[in-house]
Write a protein that binds this DNA or RNA. Structure first.
Length: 791
RNA sequence: GGUCCUAUAGUCCAACGGCUAAGAUAUCUCGUUUACACCGAGAAGACCAAGGUUCGAUUCCUUGUAGGACCACCA
C-alpha cells in the first residue's frame, strides 16, 4: 500500500480508472431516489486550473459526495466556458494572430481546433483533484446545443420584449473593437497629466483643467458649480475652445466639484459618464471625437485618423506653443479599462442590443431573498449590485468567435427578422434566410447580424446548459430549479445575478434553491493574482502532496471565508493520509482470519467506543447537511486520530494480540466496523485513500463497487459515553507522571490510585491495565507508585 | 464615497454570553512500544482599543484602529 508519493500517485491513477470504468458518478435517470442537482459554473478556458478553482470546486465536491452517499441521486454535470472573447484572446495570444486580420470563418475554425486540443488537458486538472462530476454530462458553452439554447434565449426575450436595440453611447473597447458591459470594466491606476488649458470667455482667459485634451474638438459646453463665486459672472456667455476655435455655452451644474482642477470643467461627448448625463440633461449636441477603432474622427481636423495617445501628445504640444497651456502636472488617477485587455474604455455611439432589466430592481431584490444563501451575508453583495445598476445589460459584441445573434435586418426598413426556432443553432452570415423578403416592406435586401452575443448571455443559461441532455420532461422538472449553485464570491455580481435574470425572465422561477459561496485563497492576506505574481500552482501542490492532501487543505476553510495559503497545511493533510494507511494496516494485520462474525457479547470498552463513534456520525451528518464540511472534517479527524488511534487502539492492543476468544472477537468486530464507518465519514473529503482501503479490505464483503456508492453510516440517539473521557483522563494522568519522571510510557506501575477506580475495575480493568501498565488499581486520590519508589 | 467581511499564541485557524479559551504547525523536554519518528507523551505560548448592555462579554451593541473584498466616482 501507499507509503510515499509514487504510491500515492498510483493510488490516484487506480481510483480514477476505477471510477471511470465502473461509472461511479454516473447519473441514473431512472432513479427512485431524491435528486440533488448541482449547477457548477463552468470554468473559463484560459490557461490551466488555478488554486482558487481547486479550492472552490473541492468544496462543492465535498457536498456532492456527501449527498450522493446520503441517499440522493446526484446530478452533477461539468461544463467549460469556452465561448466568446476570452477564448478569442487566448487563441490570439497563443497563436500570435489577430482575429480582425483574417476571414471570420478561418478564425472561428482556428478557435474550434484550439479548443479541441486544449479542453482535455484543461478538464484533466479537475479530474485529478477528484471532482465527482458525471463526465458524460459534459458541456461546452460554444457547442451546438449551447448555441441553440443561447439563441432560443434571445428569441424568447425578443418575443417577451425584453431585448431592444438602440443607438446609444456604449462603453467601447478600442483594442477589442467591441461594446463592453458594465461588468467587464475594471479600474486601473494610470499615469497622466492634469492640464490647465485656456478658454476665452469674451476677452477674459479662463483656465479649464483636463486630463484629456484630445477631446477638445468634441467639447459642447463648459460647466461650473452654481455657487462658485469665481465664475457666476460668466453665466449665459460663450466660451471659445482653444485650437479648434469654436464657441460653446457656459453652464452651471451641481455635479461640478469646485475643488477639483480649476472648478471649471469641459463637457465633451463622450468623455465619461457625467458628460453623457449632461448631454442628456441639457440636450447638448453629440460630437464624436473618437471612432470605433480608437482613432480621432474628422472633427479633430488635422489630428484626425491619429490614435488617441498621439493626438493627445500633439495637441498638448500645440497648446504649449500657442501659450494656451498654463500648467501640466503629472498625476496618477483611476480610469476604467476593459478587464480582458486593460485598454482604456471609451464611450462610442453605436447600435447595440440590450436586455432590459433596470425596471426589475425591486423584483430582483425579492428573488434574491428567496435563495438560501450559505453563508447568509453573501446576499449583501447581490443586493448591492442590484441597487447599483445603472445600465441595461449590453449583450452584443462586435467579435467573431461566439454565439451569433439569430437575426437578420431588412436593409431598407431596418425590420428585425428572427430565425425560426427549428432553425437553431443558426449562423446568419451563412445559413438560409427564414423568409424570402422583408415581411414589412417586401424588400429582398436582407442582411445578417454579424455581432455575436456576449459570453455572459450564454453562460447565464447554465441551469439549462447543464440539463440540456435530459429529454424526459418529468425528469427535467425535477432538475429545475436546481438544488445548489456553488461558486466563488467575486462572480456574484455577474454570473449569479445574470443567471437569476435569465431564469426569472424565461421561466418565472429562481434557478436554484441553495447557493454556496466559497471564499478565495490568499497569500499573506492578499488575493492571489497573476499580476501580483503571488500565485501557487495547484498542479505543483498535487505533484508534491497528492489530491487528498489538497482537498484536505480546501476542507479546512468554511464556506465564504478567505483562507491564507500555508504549505504546512498540505503537510498535515498528507500526514493524515499516511496515518489512515498505517492504522488500517495495523487493524488488518490483527484481523487475520476474521470473517465478520459478531461476538456473543460486546466488551464494555468496545461498546463504549461505538457509542462515541455514533455521536461523531450524528454530528458529521448534521454538519455536512448544512454545508459545514470544515466542522465535520475537523471532528472526524480529531476522533480518528485522538480517540481511535491514540487511545482506543492502545487500550485494546493486548486484548487483540492475546485475548481470550470472545474478548478478542469483540475487539476485532469493533475495529472492522468502526474503521469502515470512519472511512465513510472521511470519503467526501479524501476520496482517494478511503477508496483504496475500501477496495483492498471491504469491497468483497460489502459487495458495492466503490466506497462512494455505499450508504452513509446511520446513527442512533446519542447515548452516554462519558466513561471514555474518564478513561482517557486517567491514562493521561499516568502518562504525565511518567513523562515528568522520564520513565518510558510502557513501564509498569506498581500501584495506581484513582478516584475512578470503581468504574475502571468494574468494566475496563484488563484494557486499562494493559494500556497503562498499572499492576494494581485502588481507590483514592490520583497517585502513581513505581517500583523504584519503594526504596 | 457606499456596502460587506475579518481582527484570538511566531504562523494558520476554532469556540451556544458562563468551568482551565480548542486544534494544526513551529519551539522546548522526554519516550524507540509486535501500525506509524510522516509517531507518542508532556511543557510553554493568544482574545486589536475604548465605551456600553449584563450578575457575568473573547462572544452582543456603539465608536475607533488595522487588514481585505465588492461597488461607485475620478474634469
Amino acid at each position: 500500500m501507499a507509503e510515499n508519493m509514487t504510491d500515492i500517485k498510483s493510488v490516484e491513477e487506480k481510483c480514477k480508472k476505477l471510477w471511470e470504468k465502473e461509472g461511479v458518478y454516473r447519473f441514473n435517470p431512472k432513479t427512485k431516489k431524491k435528486i440533488y442537482s448541482i449547477d457548477t459554473p463552468p470554468p473559463t478556458v484560459s490557461g490551466r486550473m488555478h488554486i482558487g478553482h481547486a479550492f472552490s470546486y473541492s468544496q462543492s465536491d465535498f457536498i456532492a459526495r456527501f449527498m450522493r452517499m446520503n441517499g440522493n441521486e446526484v446530478f452533477y454535470p461539468f461544463g467549460t466556458d469556452d465561448n466568446g472573447l476570452p477564448t478569442e484572446r487566448l487563441v490570439e495570444k497563443s497563436k500570435g494572430v489577430k482575429s480582425k486580420d483574417m476571414p471570420r470563418e478561418e478564425f472561428i475554425k482556428m478557435c474550434m481546433n484550439f479548443l479541441k486540443e486544449e479542453l482535455p488537458v484543461f478538464v484533466q486538472d479537475w479530474k485529478n483533484i477528484g471532482i465527482s462530476c458525471d463526465w458524460n454530462l459534459r458541456y461546452s458553452t460554444i457547442d451546438d446545443e449551447s448555441r441553440k439554447i443561447s439563441q432560443w434565449s434571445f428569441l424568447d426575450l425578443y418575443k417577451k420584449k425584453r431585448v431592444y436595440r438602440k443607438d446609444a453611447p456604449a462603453m467601447w473597447c478600442p483594442e477589442c473593437r467591441t461594446g463592453v458591459a458594465q461588468v467587464e470594466v475594471q479600474d486601473k491606476e494610470i499615469n497622466s497629466f492634469f492640464n490647465d488649458i485656456i478658454f476665452k470667455i469674451g476677452k477674459e482667459n479662463v483656465k479649464v483643467a483636463t486630463t484629456r485634451p484630445e477631446l477638445l474638438p468634441a467639447c459642447v459646453a463648459v460647466f461650473y458649480h452654481p455657487e462658485d463665486e469665481r465664475y457666476k459672472k460668466y453665466k449665459g456667455k460663450n466660451a471659445r475652445v482653444p485650437l479648434f476655435n469654436f464657441e460653446v455655452p457656459v453652464k452651471e451644474d451641481k455635479r461640478v466639484d469646485r475643488k477639483k482642477g480649476t472648478g471649471i470643467v469641459m463637457c465633451c461627448t463622450f468623455g465619461d459618464q457625467t458628460d453623457m448625463e449632461w448631454q442628456k440633461a441639457y440636450n447638448l449636441p453629440i460630437k464624436m471625437a473618437i471612432s470605433a477603432n480608437g482613432k480621432m474622427t474628422s472633427i479633430a481636423g488635422k489630428y484626425s485618423d491619429k490614435n488617441i495617445k498621439e493626438a493627445r501628445k500633439e495637441i498638448i504640444e500645440d497648446l504649449k506653443n500657442a501659450g494656451l497651456l498654463t500648467s501640466s502636472v503629472p498625476i496618477k488617477h483611476f480610469v476604467n479599462v476593459h478587464e480582458r485587455c486593460g485598454t482604456e474604455i471609451e464611450f462610442v455611439k453605436s447600435k447595440q442590443w440590450f436586455v432590459k432589466y433596470l425596471d426589475l430592481k425591486s423584483d430582483l431584490l425579492k428573488w434574491g431573498k428567496e435563495l438560501n444563501w450559505h453563508p447568509e451575508f453573501m446576499k449583501h453583495r447581490y443586493d448591492n449590485w442590484v441597487k447599483g445598476l445603472q445600465w441595461d445589460w449590453l449583450i452584443s459584441n462586435q467579435r467573431y468567435f461566439g454565439v451569433p445573434f439569430p437575426i437578420w435586418y431588412c436593409k431598407d426598413c431596418d425590420e428585425v427578422i428572427l430565425a425560426k426556432e427549428n432553425q437553431l443553432p443558426v449562423e446568419p452570415t451563412m445559413d438560409k434566410l427564414p423568409v424570402s423578403k422583408c415581411p414589412k416592406c417586401n424588400s429582398k435586401n436582407i442582411i445578417p447580424e454579424t455581432d455575436v452575443l456576449n459570453t455572459w448571455f450564454t453562460s447565464s443559461m447554465s441551469p439549462q446548459l447543464a440539463t440540456r441532455s435530459v429529454k424526459d420532461e418529468s425528469l427535467k422538472k425535477k432538475l429545475f430549479p436546481m438544488s445548489l449553485r456553488p461558486q466563488a464570491h467575486e462572480i456574484i455580481s455577474f454570473w449569479l445575478f445574470n443567471t437569476m435574470v435569465k431564469s426569472r425572465l424565461h421561466f418565472g422561477k429562481n434557478p436554484w434553491k441553495d447557493v454556496a459561496i466559497s471564499g478565495f485563497v490568499t497569500l499573506k492576506g492578499e488575493k492571489m493574482s497573476k499580476s501580483k505574481g503571488n500565485v501557487i500552482s495547484p498542479q505543483e501542490v498535487l505533484e508534491k502532496y497528492g489530491a487528498d492532501a489538497l482537498r484536505y487543505w480546501a476542507a479546512s476553510s468554511k464556506l465564504g471565508e478567505d483562507f491564507d495559503y500555508q504549505e504546512k497545511d498540505l503537510v498535515t493533510g498528507k500526514k493524515l493520509v499516511t496515518k489512515l494507511l498505517n492504522a488500517s494496516r495495523f487493524i488488518f494485520m490483527n484481523l487475520d482470519g476474521y470473517k465478520g462474525e459478531k461476538p456473543k457479547k460486546l466488551e464494555p470498552l468496545d461498546d463504549l467506543f461505538l457509542k462515541r463513534l455514533n455521536s461523531i456520525v450524528k454530528s458529521s451528518t448534521e454538519n455536512f447537511s448544512s454545508y459545514e464540511y470544515s466542522k465535520a472534517k475537523s471532528d472526524i479527524e480529531n476522533f480518528f486520530w485522538k480517540d481511535f488511534c491514540d487511545n482506543y487502539l492502545e487500550l485494546i492492543k493486548k486484548r487483540i494480540y492475546k485475548g481470550e476468544k470472545d474478548k478478542k472477537l469483540s475487539a476485532q468486530y469493533t475495529l472492522h466496523k468502526s474503521l469502515l464507518i470512519i472511512l465513510k465519514l472521511f470519503a467526501p473529503i479524501i476520496p482517494f485513500i478511503t477508496e483504496e482501503i475500501y477496495q483492498e479490505h471491504y469491497r468483497k464483503n460489502e459487495k458495492i463497487n466503490s466506497i462512494h456508492l455505499t450508504e452513509w453510516p446511520e446513527f442512533e440517539k446519542e447515548k452516554d459515553s462519558s466513561d471514555f473521557d474518564l478513561l482517557i483522563n486517567n491514562l493521561s494522568f499516568i502518562r504525565q507522571e511518567k513523562s515528568k519522571r522520564h520513565i518510558p510510557l510502557n513501564a509498569p506501575i506498581k500501584q495506581f490510585t484513582t478516584p475512578d477506580s470503581k468504574i475502571i475495575l468494574k468494566n475496563y480493568k484488563e484494557d486499562f491495565e494493559s494500556a497503562s501498565g498499572a499492576e494494581s488499581i485502588n481507590q483514592g486520590n490520583f497517585h502513581t507508585q513505581f517500583a523504584e519508589d519503594n526504596a
